[in-house]
Design a protein around this nucleic acid. Structure first.
Length: 398
DNA sequence: TCTGGGGTCCTAGGACCC
DNA sequence: TCTGGGGTCCTAGGACCC
């Protein structure tokens, strides 16, 4: 196996991404605490973070901590455009880019030495270029492995750059708290803490069998490898989504079956549109539920053939919902969601269609097209009208 | 008053097949 | 007929990540 001997993996991570876009686009927000999101904090500027505001915190709590914060509603289109521009800068640096989310990616710059210099220099220029071209601050970690590069960027935040040299890896890694290890969240951290294990060095001293018995086969094996600084994962280009989903929090008030059906319809409509826009098809439909006591449940069905048809997905989702109504009645529903998985490329399926069979997507395509031209709310299925709160009466332009 | 929405991966049991 | 081994797919739940 090829073992990398130089620090040639970059982890690039935009700082307080949504909040930074807002500060970029509105000069009056610069230098001030900014919170993106209403009911829940989607992003907080570093001025707000300094006051204790954190992502995923309740809005009321955030405002209590930071009463002078400017709260702005999210502008997903602006963030998505900014993300595209930043990824263009990434790909201009190296074709080996693995996107992790809207605001972070791994870049493999091995083999670019002749062309662009050493990784540290590349990282410096990458940061400059993102700031110049897109106007956003970004932090970069550089290391021999993905894991170390990711930790390096987390340590260097905000607006920083940190290189972990190959001969300094264990000194960097071992004092870290276990929470820094990938795959260690609340539950695993608590399991380790309860045995007196708080640092990566302590994890490294445990036999692998012990970790496996504590955490299960995959997690135990994975943590053992990370703590011993063995992270063989390469930077992978062109990973595709395995599923797409949408969900709606419903609050605690009771909902009738008709309410739920209308909400489900809205979700299916949105998902179908996204699925077709991505030229994908799905085979499995998963209904997601959350109950008043915060417990969760899923109900799924796998179709015989893949589909991108709103009609097919909707009838499957409705069957699942109907089957779950007794549980919902008993427990009280607080969230309804749907995930489409087992995704495939549309081409693969179209080839299999018998000749002469009209695809079931004619209405879907027409609706998608109308919305594309006149806006998302221009066309609404009849069942939605007057059901979902706040839905606008659709107006088609003449 | 646990709040949001969008994802990935792993585990485990049962069905079914060889 | 019973016992054994091995594999894949589906369903449900759970941990974790941004």
């Amino acid at each position: 196996m090829f073992v990398r001997t130089e620090a040639t993996i970059l982890h690039a991570d935009l700082d307080a991404f949504y909040a930074s876009v807002e500060q970029r686009d509105d000069a009056s927000l610069r230098g001030r605490p900014v919170i993106v999101g209403g009911g829940v904090v989607l992003a907080a500027s570093y001025e707000a973070k300094a006051r204790g505001v954190r992502t995923a915190m309740g809005g009321w709590q955030a405002r209590a901590l930071c009463p002078d914060a400017v709260v702005v509603p999210p502008r997903m289109k602006a963030y998505s455009a900014a993300s595209k521009a930043v990824f263009a800068v990434f790909r201009n640096t190296t074709p080996l880019v693995e996107g992790i989310s809207i605001d972070e990616a791994f870049l493999d710059v091995a083999g670019l030495k002749r062309l662009r210099g050493d990784p540290a220099g590349i990282a410096v220029r990458l940061r400059e270029e993102v700031l110049r071209e897109v106007g956003l601050p970004i932090t970069v970690g550089v290391a021999r492995t993905k894991f170390l590069a990711k930790v390096a960027s987390a340590v260097a935040k905000p607006d920083g750059l940190l290189v972990v040299p190959p001969d300094g890896e264990l000194d960097f890694l071992h004092p870290l708290p276990v929470e820094r290890l990938w795959g260690v969240g609340r539950v695993t951290a608590e399991r380790l803490h309860s045995r007196g294990i708080t640092t990566v060095a302590q994890v490294a001293r445990l036999p692998e069998a012990r970790l496996v018995s504590m955490l299960g086969r995959a997690a135990g094996h994975h943590l053992h490898a990370l703590a011993h600084n063995r992270d063989p994962r390469p930077v992978r280009v062109g990973k595709r989504r395995g599923s797409i989903g949408s969900q709606r929090a419903l609050g605690r008030r009771p909902r009738t079956a008709e309410d739920l059906d209308a909400i489900l319809l809205g979700i299916v409509d949105r998902l179908g549109k996204r699925l077709r826009a991505a030229h994908r098809v799905c085979r499995t439909v998963v209904l997601r539920l959350r109950f008043a006591d915060s417990s969760r449940a899923t109900r799924s069905h796998t179709l015989r053939e893949s589909t991108a048809s709103t009609k097919v997905v909707l009838s499957t989702a409705r069957d699942l919902l109907a089957g779950a109504l007794p549980v919902i009645e008993k427990q009280g529903i607080t969230l309804l969601g749907l995930t489409l998985s087992n995704l495939d490329d549309q081409n693969a399926v179209q080839l299999a269609l018998p000749f002469g069979k009209a695809p079931d997507g004619t209405l879907d395509a027409t609706l998608d097209d109308l919305r594309e031209r006149y806006g998302a709310t221009a066309v609404t299925r009849a069942v939605l009208l007057g059901k979902d709160q706040g839905i606008q009466v659709p107006l088609l332009p003449d």
